[in-house]
């Protein structure tokens, strides 16, 4: 059964890559039917991702949240799910062109890392792990899509709302893009808060210190601060538009650094993630 993991991951990667290509073709040809087809391919990718997650759960006999690979797989699943929900709600097929590269990059990373199942280290043998990591996964998934929508916003903003370009014509209005970004961050931030709080409670219970200024903790806090600034300025001052989109991009850069950068460059108490 363990050998089935890689083929499933390749199928998942192929589906998201295929969706990216078809979204690209639909965008180039200004063909809505191709966009719809691409969205259907994303559904196929989502099924393969779910299958890979279920297989991993069976293999390890629990929730697949114990290491970098398992977190990455959940991250892909939630990001793809967040995208299809937003696509269904707001009919934003063209945004797939910006979301798929994220899923493809994560997919390439997943097929290239070690999939061997190792025993869970003692420090992670806790029920807190499920709440802590799953809330991180949900927030990261929402932030990934918000990042893609913000990039779309910035590109459309640059070309001009009413220009006769493909971007201007195929993407939703700037107002809708801005609102979708906001909604996703609005969903993501509470989960990031839950992640930080449950992490602190778990650390206090397990290690006797709710906060250790470990690099992963610190970068998670930095990420939280960036998105908190986004929401706070929006609530209080109606901060919208280009600057808000840049803040969303900055927030996701912090997410990526927290996930990859810290794990590879700044090892600490969370080093078991990779």
């Amino acid at each position: 059964m363990e050998q089935l993991q890689l083929p499933l991951l390749w199928l998942m990667l192929a589906a998201y890559t295929g969706a990216l290509v078809v979204y690209g073709m639909g965008f180039w040809a200004r063909n809505v039917k191709l966009q719809h087809l691409a969205t259907k391919i994303v559904y196929v990718g989502l099924v393969f991702t779910a299958a890979a997650l279920i297989l991993r759960s069976v293999l390890i006999g629990g929730l697949p949240l114990n290491n970098g690979f398992e977190f990455g797989l959940c991250f892909v699943f939630v990001a793809a799910l967040a995208y299809v929900i937003m696509e269904k709600r707001f009919s934003i097929g063209a945004i797939g062109l910006f979301v798929m590269p994220i899923l493809v990059v994560l997919g390439v990373w997943l097929v290239s890392i070690d999939l061997t199942i190792e025993p869970v280290m003692p420090a992670l043998r806790s029920y807190w792990l499920a709440v802590h990591v799953s809330s991180a996964v949900i927030s990261y998934g929402a932030f990934a899509v918000s990042f893609a929508v913000s990039i779309a916003y910035l590109l459309k903003d640059k070309t001009g709302e009413k220009a006769d370009s493909r971007l201007a014509q195929s993407l939703p209005s700037l107002k809708v893009l801005d609102e979708i970004t906001y909604k996703l961050i609005f969903i993501g931030l509470p989960f990031l808060t839950i992640m930080l709080v449950t992490g602190a409670v778990w650390a206090e219970y397990a290690w006797g210190a709710f906060w250790s200024w470990d690099p992963k903790e610190t970068w998670a806090l930095i990420t939280w601060l960036v998105y908190a600034i986004y929401l706070h300025t929006r609530f209080m001052k109606g901060f919208k538009g280009r600057r808000a989109a840049w803040l969303s991009v900055l927030g996701f850069a912090a997410v990526i650094f927290t996930f990859f950068g810290v794990s590879y460059l700044l090892p600490g108490m969370h080093s078991y993630l990779v």
Binding site: W213, T218, W219, I222, L225, V226, L266
Partner: peptide, 9 residues
């Protein structure tokens, strides 16, 4: 606070 945290890591 964010910048100082970055530098501290």
């Amino acid at each position: 606070i964010a910048v100082m945290s970055v530098l501290a890591t």
